[in-house]
Amino acid sequence: MLKYLVLLLAVLLPLNSFAVTPEEVMKSSQAAFLYPAKDFKARVVMRLISKSGSERTRELTMLRKNYGEPGGDQKYFMYFYQPADVKNMAFMVYKYPGRDDDRWLFVPALNMVRRIAAQDRRSSFVGSDFTYEDVSGRDIVDDTHEIAREEKLGEADCFVVKSTPKAGDTDYGHKLSWIDKKTFLPLKEEYYDKKGALYKVFTAEEIKDVKGFPTVTKRTMKNLQSGHSTVTTFTKVDYNIGIEDSLFTERYLKQPPGKWIE
């Protein structure tokens, strides 16, 4: 009896253990893309480019600290340099999976910290084509995932995962992600609107290895309908730098310690 059972397991096991589920792909991707190391720091430059070619620049330092496992809580601290009139403005987010973020903003002209209601995560991040969700991630359980196909994107072998939101409150109908089988970084994402037409494309254009963590250092989000696009570059990327918990407080929001924002 047991013999048969073992045999049966032996037959089934390879199928179950070696074939990855789409959820696992997305989980690994989330860990590689948004949760590497204990903490993270980068100088972020976003170029917002309109259809006619005019540009706006957002420049900030982004600090992030993980609390718990990949997919768990995170805290973000963003300090702005550009546009010039928002210099010293600082933005702080506590991200919790499964519920709304807490957000605070320091308005230097009023010397005042304001809580900002976390609304739609699909709304634009500082006027760019990236949404808050694109910056800090989307809960994996909010979508149903399937592996549409496996194919090469350039040199990289990829899973192509189709993710369809369970609730109808998103701006897109479904998304296709090309996940690199080696690094699990998303190399490309295609967003389809509810009419089924492709309207937004994310591409990872430059990937660098920093302290052993493959990091997307240049990415573009292009809105095909409005012709608007945003190019984001990360410089001065660093991991495991020992960011203190105390950074993520209203006090430091007003006056961030110089060592983090130089």
Partner: peptide
């Protein structure tokens, strides 16, 4: 400038 930035942080 800061108000407009603030507005653009979440508006369409």
């Amino acid at each position: 400038g800061q108000y407009l930035f603030l507005f653009s942080m979440s508006a369409k």
